[in-house]
Amino acid sequence: MGSVPSRPFTFKPADRGALLRYRVLAYTTAVLLIVLVFVGVPLQVWDDDLWVVRVVGTMHGYLYIVYLVVAFEFTRRLRVPLGWMVLVLLAGTVPFCAIVAERLLTRRFDRMTGGAGDPALAPAVER
């Protein structure tokens, strides 16, 4: 491992702003996806009504891209291990999973930073 020289790398702190951005996007995509799957799809199947699927599907589709960017940045700042980072990113496509991910990440944020500030200064050591 020592063969690869370290590149000096500074992290922006995982501040409240980053947390807020992530939470807003997580909840928005989660709610849209739940509406899409549990309202839109049944309407499409049983009532041949495509209106909800078209509108909500479009909104979720574009917002998920924003979610990807925001969640990627936030998980990096929070030093989330790589595998978990991928799961958090994918969570935006599975109903309810984005909410679970949001709870876990918010708890991690509180644990690491004591509520605000830079995790580099946090007392606990994370795995």
Binding site: S6, I65, V69, F72, R79, V80, L82, A120
Partner: peptide
């Protein structure tokens, strides 16, 4: 997005980034 992810994967040093980097930094 995959290309961006790849770029970070290649250029991040595991000793300075992520949980291990955090431990080391502390």
């Amino acid at each position: 997005f995959g290309a961006i992810f790849w770029w970070f994967l290649v250029h991040d040093d595991p000793d300075t980034v992520g949980a291990r980097g955090l431990r080391r930094q502390r």
